[in-house]
């Protein structure tokens, strides 16, 4: 980073909705991450053979998105704009990864977990994009 191109930092505390989104994203990321870490040692061949486990690509994808999701949650909580963008990307990616599981999960618990992840990530997107409720209704803020 050069002295002439400082990293822009948004001053002040983040909106409450962003804090909620960050917390939700962190919880879901930890959940997905732990699940992925537990499945990862089985290897791709064993997972495919088991039949009732998610595909290897989904597990790896979930692990990567979990790490990114935790980073994004911390950055969102520190009120930095790039964290919000990253969180949105992670949430959309996670939702897309979870959607097949909602339909084709082999067990009820896996389908439920996928549905919870998809809905949770949708909620994260909603909270991050929800604009301030106190719109600038007044034409003259000082007058």
């Amino acid at each position: 980073m050069s002295l002439t191109s400082p990293t822009p930092v948004r001053a002040g505390a983040p909106p409450r909705a962003h804090l909620l989104a960050a917390a939700l994203l962190a919880v879901l990321s930890v959940w997905d991450g732990v699940a992925a870490v537990l499945l990862l040692p089985q290897g791709s061949a064993d997972l495919a053979a088991a039949g009732d486990q998610p595909p290897w690509a989904v597990v790896v994808g979930k692990l990567v998105l979990s790490v990114l999701g935790l980073v994004a949650a911390v950055v969102v909580a520190r009120a930095q704009r790039w964290g919000v963008v990253l969180a949105l990307g992670v949430a959309v990616g996670n939702a897309l990864l979870a959607l097949p599981g909602v339909a084709f999960g082999p067990t009820t618990s896996s389908r439920t977990a996928s549905a919870v992840a998809a809905v949770g990530m949708g909620l994260v997107v909603f909270l991050l994009l929800r604009r301030s409720g106190s719109r600038a209704a007044a034409r003259d803020p000082r007058g």
């Binding site: 949105l88 959309v92 897309l96 959607l99 949708g122 997107v125």
Partner: peptide
């Protein structure tokens, strides 16, 4: 990207 996820969901 968000719309795509929504449509699929």
């Amino acid at each position: 990207a968000i719309l795509l996820a929504y449509v699929l969901a």
